[in-house]
């Protein structure tokens, strides 16, 4: 998401936005609305709340642009704001969503949202059916802390270091969480009957 061909990088857009360019900030919003919303909706699991929090994330980012260091990656900085915004919102609702002590969520439904029509590869179509719903459900059932690192790693494609920066957790903890999240995901998929042997 950083730079596409002759497009300006996210960091350059952030600098332009800081100088007062609303167009630059609009472009940043359009680039990141999907990833930020996608992360938030899988954390809070309610589309309406996720959109409200996504808006709040961008408003906070605009107001804090003077504290953004252009030498660092804009996406990590933005995801950190989204992470903190989600945490604050869920704490206000009396939940401790991203703590490891938080229990896994049995029967956690996949967020009910219309799929992006742009995702139309054969694999995407397959995942949009049973397999996709099963995967979303399994992700939704993970412990919130595992779910977030998994999403940051595989949905947002952040590096381990970037995940550590976003979540504020030590690098070793991030690695352990990711390892366990993967194991937990595989276990839940198998428990749901999606065994490799069945497919052959």
């Amino acid at each position: 998401m950083s730079k596409r061909g002759d497009e300006r990088s996210d960091e350059a857009l952030a600098v332009a936005a800081l100088a007062g360019s609303e167009d630059a900030f609009r472009e940043l919003v359009e680039r990141f609305e999907g990833p930020v919303f996608g992360l938030l909706v899988r954390i809070v699991r309610r589309a309406e709340l996720a959109e409200e929090l996504a808006q709040e994330t961008f408003v906070k980012a605009w107001r804090a642009l003077d504290r953004f260091d252009p030498a660092r990656k804009f996406s990590s900085w933005l995801f950190k704001i989204a992470h903190n915004t989600a945490l604050d919102a869920l704490r206000r609702r009396g939940e401790e969503p991203l703590s490891l002590d938080a229990p896994a969520e049995p029967g956690g439904a996949a967020p009910e949202l219309p799929a992006d029509p742009a995702a139309e590869s054969p694999l995407a179509r397959a995942l949009a059916r049973d397999a996709g719903r099963a995967l979303e459900r399994a992700i939704g059932e993970l412990r919130p802390a595992y779910r977030e690192v998994l999403l940051l790693r595989f949905a947002q494609e952040l590096s381990y270091d970037e995940i550590a920066e976003v979540t504020g957790a030590p690098l070793g903890t991030v690695k352990v969480h990711l390892f366990r999240a993967r194991q937990e995901l595989a276990r839940r998929l198998r428990a749901a009957g999606w065994e490799p042997e069945e497919w052959s």
């Binding site: 996608g38 996504a54 992006d116």
Partner: peptide
């Protein structure tokens, strides 16, 4: 390959 999630149109 998971279907992307986007907010309602007009988000920006």
């Amino acid at each position: 390959a998971l279907p992307g999630r986007r907010p309602r149109p007009g988000f920006s």
